[in-house]
Design a protein around this nucleic acid. Structure first.
Lengths: 209, 209
DNA sequence: AGTATATCTGGACGGCGTAAAGATCATCTT
DNA sequence: AAGATGATCTTTACGCCGTCCAGATATACT
């Protein structure tokens, strides 16, 4: 819609350092894992001095928050796609759950970062829990589509929470080697995920329909 | 069964430093949280030099593992007690789930440490998953008591995994402020936990009985 | 008693997050 | 066009971290 650089945060010496820092962090996260993600390492990867990031982020936490935000956006997109691709209404919920866990398994370091900031503040970022096509709202809306009564707000929030907890729990557990035999017995990791979800009412029920 | 000190690791200059270090770590964990748990701080708290711990633990990780092991033992005890205190068979599973989450909520820093080491190794400690009165086995046995078919090993392991994931997911989520309104609406945090569990088949079903 | 050995201290190294001061460069005002 | 302004980046420095090494110290074995 717009020609060139005109409304961006104004490239100065570097160009767009905050963008470059987030990208560098993501790169390090994939190649070295979360424990290697120091502010200094990110600055090094981006080719600037260790203090440069402080002109764009208040501290290390704020940089990680920016990385996390992009992670949540990616997750929201994954869930949207899963919701659309599911054929029957009954499959939609499981498809959402599987998509959630698959995302976490494919981006384990990013997934960790996404929750780390929240754990310290004991609060999820608002765009996860509140905004309209946030992950939380997508799960809730899908529950309603599946037959949950939207008038009973408490039950609906409880059910959404239950689904979220189940998916998050499985996402963290699925990486443990203890489940390898079960995965091979069932043929694939996704079969394992579906198997676990099948044992959870929240993903199998008809929700009053 | 034995009189005094005879089979212990032998107290030397300090007395029993590894014990003292683990206690110091637990103390710091409760008073300052996981982020303050540096090796140096633990040594300081125990009144020894920063290098002293290295004669008892290979590195910081091994000390944290020792702390985690005690945490798992405490959790196992909590679950045993919950299992015994539940009156009906039907209540036992929910009682287990609630006890799990309550433990995590009452010892949040310790709970974090318990999983941190495993996340790096992608493997749970064996005494959690294998030994007879481990948390995992207690959940599995309770499922059998509740009517699950012990002959269908795959289904039983899937169900146990589902219950574990649900409880772990809820344990991590329950600290977020987002659920405060729901908790007050339901009257107490435990009511909130039970409400969430009620939406999970694994905790409500009759398991084929 | 005397030697070996386990335990602890002190000091050092590099890496970390972060703050302060100075250099550099795009933009704004005139 | 010129100089002032202020954002961006670098350099330097501080205290904390995990860890290693050399030396001191106290216990245990012969």
């Amino acid at each position: 819609m717009r020609e060139t650089a005109a409304a961006e945060p104004r490239p100065y010496h570097h160009g767009d350092l905050s963008r470059a820092l987030i990208d560098a962090a993501r790169r390090l996260l994939e190649s070295e894992g979360p424990s290697a993600l120091s502010l200094r390492a990110v600055a090094r990867e981006a080719g600037v001095s260790p203090a440069a990031p402080y002109h764009h982020f208040k501290d290390k936490g704020e940089l990680l928050e920016a990385v996390a935000t992009e992670g949540w956006d990616m997750l929201n997109d994954s869930l949207s796609a899963a919701r659309k691709s599911a054929h029957s209404v009954k499959d939609k919920l499981t498809a959402l759950g599987v998509a959630y866990v698959v995302f976490a398994r494919q981006n384990p370091s990013l997934y960790r970062i996404m929750y780390d900031g929240s754990r310290n503040k004991e609060e999820l970022p608002s765009h996860v829990h509140m905004e309209d096509d946030s992950a939380y709202c997508q799960v809730r809306d899908t529950l309603v589509e599946a037959g949950a009564d939207p008038a009973d707000e408490i039950a609906l929030e409880l059910a959404t929470t239950a689904a979220w907890c189940a998916a998050h729990g499985l996402a963290e557990m699925a990486s443990f080697k203890q489940f390898d035999t079960l995965k091979t017995a069932l043929g694939s990791e996704e079969a394992f995920l579906r198997g676990v979800f099948e044992h959870m009412k929240i993903f199998a029920d008809d929700h009053g329909k």
